[in-house]
Lab assay of single mutants.
Amino acid sequence: QIFVKTLTGKTITLEVEPSDTIENVKAKIQDKEGIPPDQQRLIFAGKQLEDGRTLSDYNIQKESTLHLVL
């Protein structure tokens, strides 16, 4: 699982696999929060994550925290 922290300070927990794409993660966030993926920007280690890449591409491991910017 990974954590996604929103600007409001809320933390969302997501069940993911390293092979999941960023697009996939955004879809999971939409399921939980109702935020359309095209409004979501995910930041990890100061980098904006691209939809077509996977979590493992960015070396995002379990218990990692991503930041969600709208």
Rank of each mutant, 00 (worst) to 15 (best):
6 T>H: 06
67 H>T: 13
66 L>M: 05
41 R>L: 12
34 G>Y: 03
36 P>M: 06
6 T>V: 10
20 D>S: 07
66 L>E: 01
33 E>S: 12
6 T>K: 05
52 G>D: 10
19 S>P: 03
17 E>H: 10
18 P>S: 09
58 Y>Q: 03
56 S>R: 11
55 L>N: 00
56 S>Q: 13
20 D>I: 05
20 D>N: 07
31 D>V: 14
49 L>T: 03
64 S>C: 08
36 P>D: 07
61 Q>F: 09
62 K>F: 15
40 Q>R: 02
66 L>T: 02
8 T>P: 05
30 Q>V: 04
67 H>P: 01
44 F>D: 01
58 Y>E: 03
57 D>H: 13
22 I>G: 02
16 V>G: 03
1 Q>H: 14
11 T>Y: 09
37 P>Y: 12
8 T>E: 11
21 T>Q: 04
53 R>T: 06
41 R>C: 15
16 V>F: 12
60 I>A: 02
57 D>W: 12
13 T>A: 09
34 G>R: 06
59 N>I: 04
25 V>T: 03
63 E>V: 04
5 K>V: 15
61 Q>E: 11
61 Q>G: 12
6 T>M: 13
43 I>P: 00
38 D>Q: 11
18 P>R: 05
62 K>A: 15
27 A>H: 12
20 D>K: 02
34 G>L: 05
26 K>Q: 02
15 E>Q: 12
56 S>W: 09
3 F>I: 06
67 H>S: 08
13 T>Y: 08
49 L>E: 00
29 I>Q: 00
24 N>D: 12
3 F>N: 05
52 G>T: 10
26 K>A: 02
17 E>R: 07
45 A>P: 01
47 K>I: 13
40 Q>I: 11
28 K>S: 04
34 G>W: 03
50 E>G: 04
32 K>Y: 08
4 V>R: 00
5 K>C: 15
39 Q>T: 08
31 D>E: 14
13 T>K: 08
31 D>M: 14
46 G>F: 05
33 E>P: 01
8 T>L: 11
2 I>T: 02
14 L>V: 09
20 D>Y: 07
55 L>G: 00
32 K>D: 03
58 Y>H: 03
33 E>V: 13
29 I>P: 00
48 Q>W: 13
69 V>A: 08
50 E>S: 07
64 S>V: 07
15 E>M: 13
68 L>N: 01
65 T>S: 05
19 S>D: 12
22 I>A: 02
46 G>M: 04
30 Q>Y: 15
39 Q>G: 06
17 E>K: 08
3 F>P: 01
14 L>T: 01
12 I>Y: 06
54 T>D: 03
17 E>N: 11
38 D>P: 07
1 Q>M: 14
44 F>E: 01
13 T>I: 13
13 T>S: 10
26 K>L: 04
3 F>T: 06
23 E>F: 14
70 L>N: 08
9 G>L: 04
37 P>V: 15
50 E>M: 10
1 Q>K: 11
58 Y>F: 04
7 L>M: 14
38 D>T: 10
54 T>V: 06
34 G>K: 06
60 I>W: 02
17 E>M: 12
49 L>A: 02
48 Q>T: 15
39 Q>P: 02
16 V>A: 07
56 S>H: 12
9 G>Q: 04
39 Q>V: 11
60 I>E: 01
63 E>Q: 11
28 K>L: 11
70 L>G: 09
19 S>K: 07
26 K>Y: 03
46 G>H: 06
19 S>L: 09
35 I>Q: 03
65 T>L: 10
63 E>P: 03
5 K>P: 01
49 L>M: 06
33 E>D: 05
37 P>R: 13
42 L>T: 00
29 I>H: 00
69 V>E: 10
3 F>S: 05
51 D>W: 04
34 G>S: 05
6 T>D: 07
48 Q>H: 10
63 E>M: 11
29 I>W: 00
36 P>Q: 06
9 G>I: 02
44 F>V: 03
31 D>A: 14
35 I>W: 12
34 G>H: 07
60 I>T: 02
45 A>G: 12
26 K>H: 02
39 Q>N: 09
37 P>F: 13
40 Q>H: 04
25 V>G: 00
19 S>H: 12
43 I>A: 05
44 F>H: 06
33 E>M: 13
48 Q>N: 12
61 Q>P: 13
59 N>D: 09
